[in-house]
């Protein structure tokens, strides 16, 4: 028999603290890349809001960013590159009680996931997307040809922010706002890929390695402002428009079989 999930009230869950999300990160993250700090910030943000780990679904793509749900004691999914957003959307729409966080690296987000980002932003469903940007692929500070937060805003995102991964406290505060925001929220998390990956980047792009503290004394944060860039609090989310979600609630709680009245009505349509 299908066990229907029910969200735990935020007040009850708040007392569990960040420990409920587990203690250690995955072994395959290089020290200092920023992913571990982003993970800690996410744990702090969720526990601060009172989100129970059982009510959190974290959907991530591949690569280093895809390891985040592995390190988070909650429900997690690791999906093919760039596909986190459509999966997260499907899960969120059938069970709006879940807190659904999608995670992607900068390469997959700018590549296979770019179309999904645009449409998720346009739809304004109540999702949070964390783009863990280690700077090894798409968005180095000295090549400002592509600005994902602005792109998300242009597509209709109602919340966009940029944070420095190494500043866990500030990141946690911004992530908490993003999770709380009703509608699509986009958080660009700036990290820095350590030297091992820089070599690869040099081969690929021929340009200098990005780091929070570059050789010329500038930081990635200098190239772009940090914090909440846009927060449209009063824009209705998709869930408020959808005729099923707004009137009937979570689809996972619906009975599956048709009632005799439904059957009679449907049969009449075809006679």
């Amino acid at each position: 028999m299908f066990p229907v999930p029910v969200r735990r009230p935020l007040d009850e869950a708040r007392e569990f603290g960040p420990e409920q999300f587990g203690a250690s990160g995955p072994a395959d993250w290089c020290p200092g890349c920023g992913h571990a700090e982003a993970l800690e910030a996410l744990k702090a943000a969720c526990s601060g809001l009172g989100v129970a780990n059982k009510d959190l679904l974290c959907v991530a793509g591949t690569g280093c960013a895809g390891s985040l749900p592995e390190a988070l004691l909650s429900y997690g999914m690791r999906v093919p590159a760039g596909r986190a957003l459509p999966v997260a959307l499907g899960a969120k729409l059938v069970n709006p009680d879940l807190f659904v966080i999608a995670v992607g690296g900068e390469g997959e987000t700018a590549g296979p996931g770019l179309g999904h980002l645009m449409h998720a932003a346009r739809l304004n469903a109540d999702l949070t997307f964390l783009m863990l940007d280690s700077g090894s692929r798409g968005f180095p500070a000295d090549e400002r040809t592509f600005e994902p937060a602005m792109l998300a805003l242009a597509a209709g995102a109602t919340f966009a922010a940029r944070v420095l991964a190494q500043d866990s406290a500030a990141s946690a505060a911004v992530m908490a706002q993003a999770v709380q925001h009703r509608g699509f929220s986009f958080v660009h998390v700036l990290g820095s890929c350590p030297p091992g990956a820089e070599n690869l980047r040099l081969q690929l792009t021929g340009s200098a390695a990005p780091s929070p503290q570059g050789g010329d004394g500038t930081t990635r944060a200098d190239a772009a402002p940090l914090g909440v860039l846009f927060d449209a609090a009063n824009v209705p989310s998709y869930e408020e428009f959808d005729p099923v979600l707004s009137r009937r609630g979570a689809a996972v709680r619906e009975n599956l079989g048709l009632s005799p009245k439904d059957i009679a009505e449907l049969e009449a349509c075809f006679k």
Binding site: F2, V4, P5, L57, V59, M77, V79, R83, P86, V87, A88, L89, G90, A91, K92, L93, V94, N95, L98, G115, H116, H119, A251, V252
Partner: peptide, 14 residues
């Protein structure tokens, strides 16, 4: 995206 969204729904129990 259609297939992955349906997968997300299936994973969540619908």
């Amino acid at each position: 995206a259609a297939v992955y969204a349906a997968i997300g729904a299936g994973h969540a129990g619908a």
